[in-house]
Amino acid sequence: MKRVCFIYPPSYHYRRPFHERLREILREAGVDYVVYYSHLGKRDRFKNDTVDIEWGRCVPLTRFSGQEYQHVLLEASGYDLAIVQQENKLLVNYGLLALSRLRGNKVAYFGHGRNFQSRNPDGAGERFKQFWATKADWWFAYTDETRRHVESLGYPSERITVFNNAVDTTELRQQVAAADEGRLEALRRQFGIGPGPIGVFIGSIYPDKRMGFLVEAADLIRSRVPDFEFVVIGGGSDLPLTEELARTRPWMHVMGPRFGQEKVDLMCMGHVFLMPGLMGLAILDAGVTGLPIATTAFPWHSPEIAYLEPGVNGLLVADWQNSQAYGDAVADLLLDPARRSAMADEARAMADRYSIEQMAQRFAAGVFKALGT
């Protein structure tokens, strides 16, 4: 039986369905799959976004000077394929790459290929990452954008698997199906939301989300669509700023963090998903709820921006610093219900294409190829 392991310190809650499905697929093909993870510090545990995996293996983690070492080197080097996250700080990666040359086992990278949010792409950290990016035996790339970057470093395309990063949207789809007009109307009354079209922002609120820019654009949208309403869901460092901006705008409703069915109901009330700043996996949440995505050509999006098809399932305003251009593009969409409805259908179709099931199937196909090379 071939043996494959995945190594990464955090065992994130949102990744568990992917690991479970991948393990099933590999087991059916006679491949043993194990996840190695570590318990994090108190600050990380406070976020409550990690989980134990019963069939996984929890190993000690040592942190020093911003680096992290998982105590799994010798055990993991005995696997036919060890899959590691591509991060400079993960010291076990370099030991596994070195030992693979001696023992003949293989090491694969799982990652972005680069730091998409780096303001210094030519800095030492990114150059270090580029150097090591070509040393692995296989690459599991988040999206086609990651693939193109890894190929640009001289890595052979035949040893890259694009798995299209996703989250488990099963529960979200069930909650969307459970949303009914009576409850949505009750929410409108409860929060004083008018009957007009609604723009929705949902996610963490911090500088890269550009709330000041977004509110400027919302003012412009409101000037052209007089009954426009704006709903903001989420928390973060810029939540107080956002609440302050809402005080003089009765049509702007800052909800703070919301969860479960209530969050989904608020999204289902919407007509467009507003995120001119950093876009990541939220694009799938928007798609499942049938919200066309409206963003900009912000230079530091996460790889999942590759799922956006401008003019098809959403908007991508080229001048990312021009709030007038962004506001006009959104207003034009809201004033054209047929176009908005067609984009909503395409957004749902996009979310259907990028599922945990398909992600696991693509990933497993890459594992089989990596083991066979």
Rank of each mutant, 00 (worst) to 15 (best):
A338V: 10
V176K: 00
P17L: 13
C5G: 06
A179W: 03
I53V: 13
G66E: 05
A136R: 01
K369Q: 13
E216N: 15
Q85V: 15
R23W: 08
W132E: 03
T50G: 07
M1L: 10
F131V: 11
Y307H: 01
Q174A: 12
L334C: 05
A364Q: 04
F163D: 02
R353L: 15
V288D: 08
P121R: 09
T373W: 12
Y36E: 09
A338T: 09
F213K: 03
E243F: 07
L241V: 11
V4D: 07
F18I: 07
A76K: 06
R147N: 06
M211R: 08
I198P: 04
R63D: 05
A166W: 00
C58K: 12
F128A: 13
Y155H: 08
F363K: 10
A351F: 00
R114A: 03
V59A: 04
A186H: 01
R224I: 09
Y109T: 08
I356T: 15
H112A: 12
G154Q: 02
R43K: 15
E244C: 11
D80Q: 10
F191N: 00
Q130I: 05
T161K: 05
P337E: 04
V167M: 14
P195C: 02
M269R: 01
K369A: 14
T373P: 00
A329E: 07
D219N: 07
G41S: 10
G203T: 04
H149K: 11
P17C: 04
E68K: 11
L266C: 00
